[in-house]
Amino acid sequence: MENQTLKKSVLFVLLITVLVSGISQGLLMPVISIIFEQQGISPTISGLHSAAFYIGILIASPFMEMFIRKFGFKNVILIGLTITIVSNLLFLVFESIFIWFLLRLLIGIGANMCALASQTWITSTVGQKSRGVIISIYGLCFGLGFAIGPYATSLIEYNENLPFLLLACLSMTIFTIVLFLENRHSISYEEQVNFRLLDFFNRFKLVLNYAWVALLFPFTYGVLESVINVNLPTQVLRSNLDLNLIAVLVSVFALGSIIFQIPLGIMSDRYGRRKILAISTAIGTFSFGVGVIFFHNIILLISMLCIAGMFVGSIYSLGIAYMIDLIPKQLIPMGTVLSGIVFSFGSILGPIIGGGLLETIPHFNVLWIFIVLLLILSIVLAKGIQKEL
């Protein structure tokens, strides 16, 4: 009974950690985008600058599997939180765009350490029957934080430093809570001995061979999330729409994902991940299409982003659950790392492509990026389902 209580308490702390991570990401990116837009910095530069966060994730990702096995989940989370706290506080000291780039890169490293350690801790301890639900709850917590975060963008009207102070304080709180957890490692000694017989790149190839389709979803979600955070605020400002609409659009998408995270997780456990992902991407494509056509109809735009969030906002967590279904247990840490890498690539490419298209194509709508990506995913999944039949 004590072990069961311990597991529940650990899960609760990890979910709170993910919640704060969502708040951090949901707040930091739009805040810096708004500051840059007000300073007259071009969308392309803003998009390139936002890539620093995801470059940090990419830098950390190849080493994460080794760090988790060597130091354990708890210690990796604590190191990541320390990096995040210090970096947020340094935003108050420096105003240089280059130094802010470095600070965003460091926050990316710290956030990746927290996210991958928490995610691997959860995925390596839950069974397949409840995997979809648990990972959906994980995604729900991130989505809830992601929805809450943008509402704090209004703090910059009082003082530009307030959002960074808030994020530092939240991270300090989580750091204190995590200190009380018992440290754990990703795999047992016997599994670790066998696991080391494979080198890093062989494990990398194995995961790709088993689950390349599943990895398309973290990539797509990376593009989607970063474009919504970085390019959509710029488009709203350039369309002469209300500044407060930025927080509403970002948060309703996240709200939609919160509403449907657990139901989609339950349905994926029951009917299969591939079928649920195919339906979700098809509905997401339609919703973004309607959003493009009626972009200046605020009520309809908000409604379509909420519906898109309900179905597409879960593709990251469902994609990871799908990947874990496809790979052997000893490859789960590498699969989690690889998910982070492809997510980062998507997150880096998204704002750069979105910013470039906004600057070069008159009246371009960034929602077209989502339509094209989701349509490709729908076709790939539909072909896979036909083969199964």
Rank of each mutant, 00 (worst) to 15 (best):
M267Q: 15
P263D: 08
G256T: 05
S251V: 09
N244S: 15
S314K: 08
N244I: 12
G309T: 03
V292Q: 06
F295D: 00
M310G: 11
V252D: 03
I283A: 00
L232F: 10
L224M: 15
V248H: 10
A247P: 11
L249H: 01
N229R: 14
S314F: 03
G272P: 10
F286H: 11
I302Y: 00
F295C: 01
I266K: 13
L255W: 03
Q261F: 02
L243V: 15
I266A: 10
S287T: 07
H296Y: 15
L255A: 10
G313S: 01
P233G: 02
I262A: 06
C306D: 08
L277P: 07
I266P: 11
F311P: 07
I258F: 09
F253A: 00
N240I: 00
I258H: 00
N244Y: 14
G256L: 00
L264D: 13
L224I: 13
A254R: 04
L245G: 02
L237T: 06
N240A: 00
R274D: 15
L232A: 05
G222Q: 06
L224E: 15
M267K: 15
I307C: 05
I228Q: 08
S251Y: 03
S314G: 03
R273A: 05
I283G: 03
N229F: 15
L277Q: 04
I228R: 04
I302A: 00
I302S: 09
S239W: 02
M304E: 06
I228H: 01
I262D: 08
L243S: 14
T285E: 03
G265V: 11
N229I: 13
A282M: 13
I293G: 06
T285L: 01
V236A: 08
S268W: 03
L300M: 11
E225Y: 10
A254F: 03
L237A: 09
A247K: 00
G222I: 08
L305Y: 04
G265A: 04
I299P: 11
N244T: 14
M310E: 04
A278I: 12
G222L: 06
L232I: 13
Q261M: 07
M310P: 12
F288T: 11
S303L: 13
M267V: 14
L237C: 01
F288G: 06
L249D: 03
G265M: 09
